[in-house]
Design a protein around this nucleic acid. Structure first.
Lengths: 335, 335
DNA sequence: CTGAAAGCGCTAACAA
DNA sequence: TTGTTAGCGCTTTCAG
C-alpha cells in the first residue's frame, strides 16, 4: 500500500508538503501542488484514515445505535427508514457509519462496546427510551450525540416528530368527521413517543370538550399483535366510534380486530394512526394517518451531529421538532 | 483519556509490560500481571483502538454493504434480518460493524468510499447482483470478503440459500396437491437469487414432466407492486392453477391480484412463495412458503469472515449453501 | 520475565 | 513556501 513517504520521495518533496497538498493547505506553491497531485493520482494514493485519525483525533465515523427490543426491526420499517436517512447524509458528507443493533441478550456487552469505542466522532441514538443508561454513559464520556426522539437531557440535541400536536390533530380530525366517543391504542409508555402521543390524544379530547375516559385507553407496545389484542380488549369493555392508534403497525392489527368483531372501518369505527408508513397506503382499507417525516428525521439528525462536530454550529444543543401532517385517504371497504 | 503510558508509570513498569498484560501474553509474571491489571481496572483503562489498529493493521471492524436499489429496505425485511444476524455475531466476537446503504444516486461516491476505506478488516456484501463492480474492486484490492448470495468468483466465499432446490420443492408441492398448470413470478433477473429460483422452477417442472411455457413466466422485481402487476399480466394472458412466486413480498401483491380477479386462493390458484418472512404467517391467507434462514445467513456470513480473518480457517474460500424448508400453512379464505 | 528502542502513517508546530 | 522535528498510542522485535 502506498504511503505518504513514497509519494514524497517520488515527488522529491517532504512528507509535510504532500500532507499539505492532501489537506488543501493554501501554503503550497502551485508548481509543487500540481506536481505532487499528479503523482498522488497516478499512484492512486489514499491517506490511511487510521494514521490520520490517530493524529487528529477525528475519524469521520458516526455511530448509530438502534434498539431491537421494542419495535422489531423486521416488522416495523421505522428504523430502516431512519438508518437510510442517516446513511445518505453520511455519504454526502464523507462520513462512514458504524452500526449497533442492540439486542437484549447482549445488552451489557454491546453497551460497553459502544461506550469504549474510540473510533467514532459522535453518535446517534435512535431509541427514545426514557432513562436509557447508554445515554447517561455517553453524556458522562462527553461523546457528541444526537438523539432521535425527545429526551430529558438539556445537553443532548434531539430530532423528534411533533408527537403531541400530531396526535391532537388526529383527534381533531375524528371529531370533525362526527366521532364523539374516541378511544386510543397507545405505544410503549417507557418510550417518549408513546407517552407524548397519549398526551396529544388527551389534549385533543380536552380541546374538544370530550371526556378522558380511562377505559378508552388501551396500552399497546407498537406491534401489530399488540394492536390486535388491545383493540379486542377495548371492544369487549367499551363502545367507541373513533380510534387513534399510536402507530401504523398497531393499526393493522387494530383494524383486523375491528373487522373480526363484525364492524366496518371507517363506517362503524374510524381509525387514524401515527406514522404513515409506505405500507399504510397499500393497506386495505388504506390508512388515514398522521405522517411523520421519518427519513428526514434521520438525515437531519446526522446533519446536526456533523455540524456540531465540525462546529459550523454553536455548541448549544438543538431540539428540533419536525411537523407532522394529516394524510386522509379514501377508504374502501374490504370485498 | 488514560493511555498505556500512564498505566505503566503508575504501575512502575514499562509500556511493553502493560501491553503484554492487555494482550494476555503468557510472558508476564503473575505478580506483575495482577498488579498491572488492578490499575487497569481501577482507572477503567481501555486501549485506544485507533493506535492499536495503526500498529497491528487490524481494526476488528467489519463492513456491510446493502443495496437499496433492488429490494427496498422499507418494505422487504430481508436486509434487516441479515443485518441483525451479522450484528449479533459481531457483538459476540467483539467486532464492530460499519454499514453502507448503497443508493443509486450516490453509488460512485459510496463505492469509492468503501473501496478506499482502510478501516475495515473485511467486508460482507449483501447484494447478490450479477457482475457487481464493487465486488471486482474489492477482489482487486484483496479485501477479505464474504458475499450473501451466490457469486461467480471462485476466490470469494459466499453464503446462500438453496434457491434452486427450494424452488423445485415448491413446484413439487404444488404438483402433489394436484396442480398441473403452474406459473411463476420471478425475481430480478440480474440477481443470482432471481435467476436461480427460476432455474429451480423449471427444474421442478421437468422433474414432473410438465411443459415449460414461456407465457407462464412473468418477470418480477421482488416488490409487492411488481407481484401485483405481473400476476395481472399472467391472468390476462393464460390460465393456471398453481403459482410459484420468488418472494413473499411479491406474493402479497400476487394474491391481491388473484382475488381482485374474482378467484380464490388456494382453491382456484394455489400460491407458494420464497422467503417465509415473519409477515407471511400473519398474512390473510397465511402463506405457504419456502423458508430460507435469513437471519442465519447473516450470522454465518459474519462468522465465516471472522474465522477467515483470524485464520482459524484455511484461506480457501467457502461456498456455504443453507437448506430451505417447505412451510405449509392452513390457508383460510378472506371473509 | 522485563525494558529499551523502533516504528505503524500521518499531522502540526517550528524553523528556515 | 518548504523541510525538520516531534509525536499521536500502541505493538513488537531484540537484548538483557
Amino acid at each position: 500500500m502506498t504511503t505518504i513517504n513514497e509519494i514524497a520521495q517520488i515527488a522529491g518533496v517532504s512528507r509535510s508538503t504532500v500532507s499539505r497538498v492532501i489537506n488543501h493547505d493554501p501554503n503550497v506553491s502551485n508548481r509543487t501542488r500540481v506536481k505532487v497531485q499528479a503523482i498522488i493520482d497516478e499512484k492512486g494514493y489514499q491517506p490511511n484514515p487510521v494514521a490520520r485519525s490517530l493524529m487528529t483525533g477525528r475519524s469521520r465515523v458516526l455511530g448509530l445505535v438502534i434498539p431491537t427490543s421494542y419495535s422489531s426491526l423486521y416488522t416495523d420499517p421505522f428504523f430502516s427508514m431512519v438508518a437510510h436517512g442517516i446513511s445518505s447524509t453520511c455519504t454526502v458528507n464523507n462520513y462512514t457509519l458504524m452500526l449497533w443493533l442492540l439486542e437484549p441478550d447482549y445488552e451489557k456487552r454491546a453497551n460497553s462496546n459502544i461506550l469504549n469505542n474510540r473510533l467514532i466522532d459522535g453518535i446517534i441514538i435512535a431509541s427514545n427510551m426514557i432513562d436509557d443508561p447508554l445515554v447517561d454513559g455517553l453524556i458522562q464520556r462527553n461523546v457528541p450525540m444526537v438523539q432521535i426522539g425527545r429526551n430529558d437531557h438539556p445537553e443532548v440535541s434531539s430530532v423528534d416528530a411533533d408527537n403531541v400536536h400530531g396526535s391532537a390533530m388526529a383527534v381533531r380530525y375524528l371529531v370533525r368527521t362526527g366521532r364523539k366517543r374516541l378511544a386510543t391504542i397507545t405505544g410503549n409508555m417507557d418510550l417518549y413517543s408513546g407517552y407524548d402521543r397519549l398526551i396529544g390524544f388527551k389534549r385533543g379530547l380536552e380541546e374538544n370538550h370530550l371526556p378522558i375516559l380511562e377505559e378508552h385507553i388501551a396500552y399497546g407496545d407498537y406491534t401489530e399483535e399488540g394492536g390486535y389484542v388491545q383493540t379486542k380488549a377495548l371492544l369487549s369493555r367499551t363502545e367507541f366510534d373513533g380510534l387513534f392508534v399510536a402507530s401504523d403497525m398497531m393499526s393493522f392489527g387494530a383494524i383486523q380486530a375491528i373487522q373480526e368483531a363484525g364492524l366496518r372501518v371507517p363506517e362503524d369505527i374510524a381509525v387514524v394512526s401515527f406514522d404513515d408508513l409506505p405500507a399504510a397506503a397499500r393497506h386495505k382499507p388504506a390508512l388515514t394517518a398522521i405522517r411523520q417525516p421519518i427519513h428526514q428525521m434521520g438525515s437531519i439528525a446526522a446533519q446536526t451531529l456533523i455540524d456540531q462536530l465540525e462546529s459550523k454550529d454553536t455548541a448549544t444543543p438543538k431540539r428540533i421538532i419536525l411537523p407532522t401532517e394529516l394524510v386522509i385517504r379514501e377508504t374502501t371497504i374490504q370485498p
